[in-house]
Design a protein around this nucleic acid. Structure first.
Lengths: 169, 169
DNA sequence: GTGCAACTTCAAGCGAACTTTAAGTCAAGC
DNA sequence: GCTTGACTTAAAGTTCGCTTGAAGTTGCAC
């Protein structure tokens, strides 16, 4: 960005609240290209200057934070947009819709933690047994557990986030 | 020209130790196509019948389980193969190399759990405050934390697994 | 008014992890 | 011997989440 003054926006008299894409990128840690990509997906919005440049309200930082949290919880960007679309866009999302999402996400987080704990426990067992015990070693016994999830790329996702969000309640 | 003149022993679907790709797929829960893909990457190996069909030893189930565990820990398939290559292929991996990997993975798991706990705690705060508190809400405050990791797609990976495995020797 | 960083669009490219398709071959039960 | 389903290869296609490149425009300090 230019070495213009250190406030958020030096240009216009009343533009104190608006961020350029470079500023939004710096604040959010998301690359310019990714922000434009997010805009193309409808995750964030921008107004335009008369010259066509994007200007973002500070509320976009909140939306980006929401998206990043959604990703960490395992949602795709499409799913994050759906969730955002259901939130009232006030000063901040509020009310039962947000409660519902937060609760759902916490459940998902708990599931992910539980799975990691399971894996960790099995690895601990392996260390203890030197991975030589056919009856106790995680990697020996894992195949008993492997077949249970059915075919497909289910190993990175243990459940379908869409059904979780849409049909869950 | 008999199908099983050799040690391959391709006499039938339930011929002792060797599995067809269909059987391996059923046992492991991994699609046929993915198994062939894994073979192309060197993650698993097969002998061949005189007719050219793959036959897998039961040890491949262990290797697949290892790969799946590696994926859950956040490794790429290439990294999983590197780890497999360093394990002695005995009845089971054993010894200090396995200890080292298991320990490294447990550290990674701990990190992932910690991050999930952090996110969960922030969501809990949001529920408590109805997401209206500018000072406490995770999504309001997240941007303060967002910029700290620098640019790039750092939000899904908080560290580089390659340096973890290679440099940590 | 000039210089230059920061911006614009659009399309193509990328990397990971697979899946799909097409056309053919093998294995085993009857 | 025939049939049928499981298998073979190679290449192309898919999805996700972006990044890169080219070529041009805007905004602002000097």
């Amino acid at each position: 960005m230019t070495a213009n003054s250190d406030d958020t926006r030096a240009a216009g008299p009343r533009s104190g609240d608006l961020l350029t894409i470079g500023q939004l990128s710096a604040r959010s840690g998301i690359a310019h290209s990714a922000l434009r990509y997010y805009e193309s997906l409808g995750l964030i919005q921008a107004t335009r200057t008369s010259g066509g440049q994007r200007r973002y309200s500070r509320g976009m930082l909140r939306r980006i934070a929401f998206v990043r949290a959604a990703q960490r919880v395992g949602l795709s960007l499409d799913e994050a947009r759906d969730a955002l679309d259901r939130l009232p866009e006030r000063p901040a999302p509020s009310g039962s819709e947000w409660d519902r999402i937060a609760t759902t996400w916490q459940d998902r987080i708990d599931e992910q933690i539980a799975e990691l704990e399971w894996l960790k426990a099995r690895l601990t067992g392996c260390i203890g047994c030197g991975c030589l015990s056919l009856t106790r070693c995680a990697l020996h016994n894992a195949d008993d557990r492997l077949g249970q999830a059915g075919p497909g790329a289910h190993y990175l996702r243990t459940h379908d986030p869409a059904t979780e969000l849409e049909g869950g309640r």
